[in-house]
C-alpha cells in the first residue's frame, strides 16, 4: 500500500514499489517481438533458481528472421567497409555503457564470480573493437593481386556470402555469442543467430545495445529457444547461405550438415572455440566468396 505523504515530507515508511521486470524477447528485423507461437520457457541459473522467462522461438519466427536478414543484406553488404567498422565500434561503445548490467546477467546466468564476469564483458567489448578494426583490412589479407601469364591485372576480392545462420556457443553466454556473430557481420553478411538455450539472457540484452548502435534492423536477428527445434529448420532453409554450428555438439552436427548440403551451404563446424586466444582471421574468411577479376592491361 502506498503511504500518504505527510505535508511536504514522506512518511518514514517508503512506498512499496512494484518491480518493472524486463520481458526477454526476440530481435527480428530491428524490432523486439514475442514468439509468434506465444510460447516462452523458464531460464534458470545453474542452481535452478528462475531468472526469467525467455521467448521460445518457433520455425515461423526463424522464417521471419531469415526474411528480415535477406532484406537487410543489400544495404549492409554494400555499406563501405569503413562504415561497417564504425558501426561495430559503436556496438562496443554501447556495451561499455551497460557494463554493470552485463556483469550482473552473466553472474546470474553462468554462476561464478563478478570478476570473471567482468573479464568476460571486457573481452566481449574488446572483441567488437578487434573486428571493427579488421573491417577495412581483411580484404587486403584474404584477397590480393594474382600473378597471371597474360596481359591482365588479375585480382581477387572477398565478398559477403549472404545470410549466415549461427548456433551460438552454449556455455559462454556473452563472449561466445560475440565471438561468432561479430566476424560474420564484419565481412558484410547478415545473421540469424540462435542463442544459448540455457543462457540466452545476456545475448537478448546485447540486442538492446545493437538496436542503438546504428546497426540497421535485420542485420542481426536473434532467436531464443530450443536449438534442437530450430537448428534443423535453419540448416535446411534454402535462403540461408552459410551455417555456423559452433554451438552444436559434435555428435549432433552430421544431420544438420547433411541438410545444409542440399543447398550447398558453407558450413563451419570448428572442433573447439578458444575464447581466450586472439581470434585471428579464420572466422572472417569463413563466410566470404572470392571474386576474381581479370582486367586487361595496355588497353
Amino acid at each position: 500500500m502506498p503511504s500518504k505523504p505527510a505535508g511536504r515530507t514522506r512518511t518514514a515508511q517508503p512506498a512499496e514499489r512494484v518491480a518493472v521486470r524486463k520481458t526477454y524477447k526476440l530481435y527480428i528485423g530491428g524490432a523486439f517481438p514475442r514468439s509468434e507461437s506465444g510460447r516462452s520457457y523458464p531460464v534458470t541459473d545453474p542452481a535452478g533458481t528462475l531468472l526469467a522467462h525467455a521467448a521460445q522461438a518457433s520455425r515461423k519466427d526463424l522464417r521471419d528472421a531469415v526474411t528480415a536478414a535477406r532484406k537487410a543484406f543489400a544495404g549492409w553488404s554494400r555499406a563501405t567497409a569503413y562504415n561497417r567498422g564504425q558501426v561495430l565500434y559503436r556496438i562496443a561503445e554501447m556495451m561499455e555503457g551497460r557494463r554493470e548490467q552485463f556483469i550482473a546477467e552473466i553472474v546470474a546466468a553462468e554462476g561464478g564470480g563478478a570478476d570473471a564476469a567482468a573479464a568476460q564483458v571486457d573481452a566481449a567489448v574488446d572483441r567488437w573493437v578487434w573486428y571493427a578494426g579488421w573491417s577495412d583490412k581483411y580484404a587486403q589479407v584474404v584477397g590480393g593481386a594474382n600473378p597471371v601469364a597474360g596481359p591482365y591485372f588479375n585480382f581477387s576480392l572477398p565478398e559477403p556470402s549472404g545470410v549466415v545462420g549461427i548456433v551460438a556457443p552454449q556455455e559462454s553466454s556473452l563472449l561466445g555469442f560475440v565471438s561468432v556473430v561479430a566476424p560474420a557481420l564484419t565481412t558484410g553478411n547478415t545473421v540469424v543467430v540462435v542463442a544459448s538455450s540455457q543462457r540466452p539472457l545476456p545475448a537478448v540484452s546485447l540486442t538492446e545495445a545493437l538496436a542503438t548502435s546504428d546497426l540497421p534492423g535485420g542485420v542481426l536477428n536473434l532467436l531464443t529457444g530450443s536449438v534442437d527445434e530450430l537448428a534443423p529448420w535453419l540448416a535446411s532453409h534454402r535462403d540461408v547461405n552459410c551455417l555456423d554450428l559452433t554451438g552444436v555438439p559434435a555428435a549432433d552436427r552430421v544431420p544438420l550438415a547433411q541438410a545444409a548440403a542440399d543447398t550447398v551451404k558453407r558450413v563451419l563446424a570448428p572442433a573447439t572455440l578458444d575464447l581466450a586466444a586472439e581470434p585471428g582471421t579464420s572466422r572472417l574468411a569463413a563466410f566470404v566468396e572470392t571474386k576474381t577479376v581479370w582486367h586487361p592491361l595496355g588497353v
Binding site: R63, V66, S236, H237, R238, D239, V240, A259, D262
Partner: peptide, 14 residues
C-alpha cells in the same frame, strides 16, 4: 509450393 514439396523453407534464389 516448394516448401510443401521439399519440407524446407524456400528462397527467392530458386
Amino acid at each position: 509450393r516448394h516448401k510443401l514439396t521439399t519440407g524446407a523453407y524456400d528462397g527467392p534464389d530458386y
